[in-house]
């Protein structure tokens, strides 16, 4: 699609939009209420894990419905060594990333060596997440079903080393992560991995005939995706301060991860971000309106998410981002 707008005007418009969004994101904690900050943190978190999942499914076409496994493992690993040994989140981060990469590589190795894909692959990933959920229920070292709790620090004092501080600190951390993931994905898409992943996604046999070692590149996608998701898990642990297997490894958590990119646009760079914002706006908007009306309806927010997913799958199978991008005067890169 070529835009009929003169390039100069399009560039100025794009620059202006990027500037406005950046300024808004950076200044949000300074001007917004604490509620707004927490909602924005959630949106950024969803954008980040969505981006991570998108690497595997959106780019390389390998469907995982068990990504809660990596959130949960990452969270539990970092929280476990913090609670028991007092090891801080920065060291825990490395361990979490290492373990999740290894687990991702293990699942990828099993699946891709045995040529499992599509429905079977998605079920395999769910099965591993469920095994972890049940397994952690029985691991007393991690608190079992009763949960693992982290000491809450001083909320008014910023302690970067211990990753303790006011909500704004978590917001900025998540903002940095989301921006970093966007940057990494943008870079990868323009390089060899992006071309090879998309080729594998579209037709694996043709990709092989063009000299692509598809096993190797699918492995890279899985390992990168699980490593990125592990970081979200560590964040989750130190932001939430409590972990329950039921909650963090649950199937619902995996679905929550995929909703953003699917709604925003599978395989696009900005899809996961647009989708996460749409989900949070609609979901929390509904909860907020209902709260104003004096009713607390558990499930309302998820029903809205389900309806959005349904409508998008029916009417916008490529997601919200492509039409939105055109409306904003961007040229959505065909990915």
């Amino acid at each position: 699609m070529t835009s009929d707008r003169p390039a100069g005007a399009g560039d100025r418009r794009r620059l202006a939009l990027i500037t406005v969004v950046t300024v808004a994101l950076v200044t949000l904690p300074l001007v917004g209420s604490s509620y707004l900050v927490s909602v924005a943190t959630l949106a950024l978190y969803l954008a980040y894990v969505g981006q991570a999942w998108n690497v595997m499914m959106g780019f390389a076409g390998q469907l995982s419905l068990g990504h809660s496994l990596y959130v949960g493992l990452g969270a539990y690993v970092a929280a476990g060594i913090f609670v028991h040994f007092g090891v801080g989140p920065w060291a825990g981060l490395w361990l979490a990333v290492a373990i999740c990469s290894a687990v991702g590589a293990f699942i990828g190795l099993l699946a891709f060596r045995l040529r499992i894909s599509g429905v079977q692959l998605s079920l395999l990933t769910v099965a591993f997440a469920e095994l972890a959920r049940i397994g952690f229920d029985h691991l007393d070292w991690f608190g079992g079903p009763g949960g693992l709790f982290l000491r809450v620090g001083d909320r008014n004092h910023i302690d970067l080393l211990g990753f303790r501080g006011p909500p704004a600190m978590y917001y900025y951390a998540m903002l940095a992560l989301a921006a970093g993931a966007l940057g990494v994905c943008a870079l990868l898409l323009r390089r060899r991995p992006g071309y090879y992943w998309r080729a594998i996604r579209e037709d694996e046999v043709a990709a092989q005939a063009l000299g692509i070692d598809t096993f190797r590149w699918k492995m890279l996608a899985v390992v990168l995706s699980s490593a990125m998701t592990a970081i979200a898990g560590v964040f989750f642990a130190f932001y939430n301060n409590s972990l329950f297997p039921e909650q963090i490894f649950g199937f619902g958590r995996s679905i929550e991860i995929i909703l953003g990119p699917v709604i925003g646009g599978l395989g696009t760079l900005f899809g996961p971000i647009v989708g996460a914002v749409a989900l949070v706006l609609l979901g929390d908007g509904t909860t907020e309106i209902l709260a104003k009306a004096g009713v607390d309806l558990p499930g309302a927010r998820q029903v809205v998410h389900g309806l959005v997913l349904l409508l998008v799958t029916i009417y916008l199978p490529n997601g919200l981002w492509p039409p939105l991008a055109r409306a904003l005067g961007f040229q959505p890169r065909r990915l």
Partner: peptide, 27 residues
């Protein structure tokens, strides 16, 4: 439609039914 889109369609229905029941009958 592609397989994954049809799966997502059913996942959407699942979310709506499951949480619709939660809305209607409580936890």
């Amino acid at each position: 439609r592609p397989e994954h889109l049809r799966m997502l369609l059913m996942i959407a229905l699942a979310i709506i039914i499951g949480n619709g029941l939660l809305l209607a009958f409580g936890p």
